[in-house]
């Protein structure tokens, strides 16, 4: 464990807590893409298949359980919770996310570290996580104004993978045979997708103005 990875995991955790706070405090999920949340639940469920077979550390197991439980809770909330469900921007959240699932699974079958059930699903989860934010970014463009908590949620979500990139660079130089190129390339794509969001987020912070994405 290095400081970059720990900071990345904490930033990821913060993003989930900010989202839970937004939904709980405002009893609303307006501006949040249910499709992105469903993709994240799938990412965690397919990545942590080894949750009960391989014990790495208490921290690792606890964090996996937290990520799985929180992502499922958010999807449940947006689908079932009466008050929250009504605030969902159903007509704006129309990204065909099943295409992302199909594409990532096809890629995972072709490009993986080992042609085993667990490794194919691990690669699938890595590819899917890289593009899972797309429905959310599309929804953001369509809904124009972004409330603060949603903006912060997306900012922390993007920042966590950027910290993981530093973690991979650090591990590359400090560990003998460390090669994580599938996660690395996907991480670069994932962080790249946030580039324009980061730009407008920085502008709104600099000008102390409301976050506005160009329509």
């Amino acid at each position: 464990m290095n400081i970059f990875r720990f900071a990345g995991d904490m930033t990821h955790l913060i993003s989930i807590l900010v989202l839970l706070l937004k939904i709980y405090a405002t009893k609303s999920c307006s501006g949040i893409s249910l499709k992105t949340q469903e993709l994240y639940a799938l990412v965690f469920l397919t990545r942590y298949l080894d949750l009960f077979t391989d014990f790495i550390s208490v921290y690792n197991t606890v964090m996996k359980l937290v990520f799985i439980a929180s992502s499922l809770a958010i999807v449940w909330c947006m689908r079932m919770h009466g008050l929250v469900k009504r605030s969902y921007d159903k007509e704006l959240d129309t990204f065909r996310h099943y295409l992302l699932v199909a594409g990532c699974f096809a890629l995972a079958v072709l490009v993986n570290e080992k042609f085993t059930f667990q490794e194919i699903f691990w690669a699938f989860s890595i590819y899917l996580e890289a593009v899972a934010i797309l429905p959310q970014l599309v929804l953001l463009q369509r809904s124009g104004n972004v409330d603060n908590l949603t903006g912060q949620y997306i900012f922390f979500l993007g920042a966590y993978r950027a910290l993981y990139l530093l973690n991979w660079i650090y591990r590359y130089f400090t560990e003998v045979r460390f090669s994580r190129w599938i996660a690395c390339v996907s991480g670069i794509v994932q962080t790249g997708l946030y580039a324009d969001f980061f730009y407008y987020y920085f502008l709104s912070w600099k000008n102390n103005a409301k976050l506005q994405l160009p329509a």
């Binding site: 990875r5 995991d9 990821h12 990545r47 080894d50 077979t53 391989d54 014990f55 790495i56 690792n60 964090m63 996996k64 990520f67 570290e113 667990q118 691990w122 993981y164 973690n167 994580r180 996660a183």
Partner: peptide
């Protein structure tokens, strides 16, 4: 790390 799973990251 246990055999097989070389994924120690989240």
């Amino acid at each position: 790390l246990p055999k097989g799973s070389h994924h120690d990251e989240l």
